[in-house]
Design a protein around this nucleic acid. Sequence first.
DNA 1: AAAGGGTTCAACCGCGTGGGC
DNA 2: TGCCCACGCGGTTGAACCCTT
Length: 258
Amino acid sequence: MGRSPCCEKAHTNKGAWTKEEDDRLVAYIKAHGEGCWRSLPKAAGLLRCGKSCRLRWINYLRPDLKRGNFTEEEDELIIKLHSLLGNKWSLIAGRLPGRTDNEIKNYWNTHIRRKLLSRGIDPVTHRPINEHTSNITISFEAAAAAANRDREENKGAIFRLEEHNKAAAIGRHHQNHPAGDWGQGKPLKCPDLNLDLCISPPAPCQEEAAMVMMKPVKREAGLCFSCSLGLPKSADCKCSNFLGLRTAMLDFRSLEMK
DNA sequence: AAAGGGTTCAACCGCGTGGGC
DNA sequence: TGCCCACGCGGTTGAACCCTT
């Protein structure tokens, strides 16, 4: 027994949307707002399933969509976020106002993957393609192991810093790789965001960080350009945020929350 | 000009999750 | 506590378009 279908497929249209269908959907949502996708098609007089309506609205009809080509700035931000979050397209989209997860996913698969490959970077691991693949550190699954290995390699220095930061109930953003080094022809290293994701019970201010993470970043909301891209702080930077996070210990479970 | 292969992207599909009962 | 339902997500598909020969 399979899962029951989300709608009565025999009486629904499929494939490309017509102008008339678009108009009906837009008019209905303008009048009644988003939500109740299952009942929306019938109410709006559309022969579509709710899922299809939702997707059409979110990916194409929403008035706040940016559309048009991605900028270099957006490219680099997507790459950095992907190295941090993996294929969490909705989370990545949440950091790019006006862009949808579907759009970013498609753009990644068609443009950025190739761009990274041409730079000699594995788009999955964000490591140089010829580097030994056992050193993957970008996934959440590997984060704890990577943190341990980093501690070993740095003879405890990072660990002490972590302990210090834990005590101060703030996270870490110790970073000393010039952003310009990345992808500029030198031996390529993965963009070392150095977020050192840790699995730990939330400290008091983590909840605040989690709340911040649930909302899309608006760059004008106190983030300088460098911080919004995850680059090292500039001399005149006064931000206490990184990628929309307060510099708190980042609990990856918070990242998953919406 | 036409054929064929490659690319892009809108849309679909199935599963996981969380809330309500 | 367990079930059901609706929603949201990520992977996949396929039609339309583009490019090369």
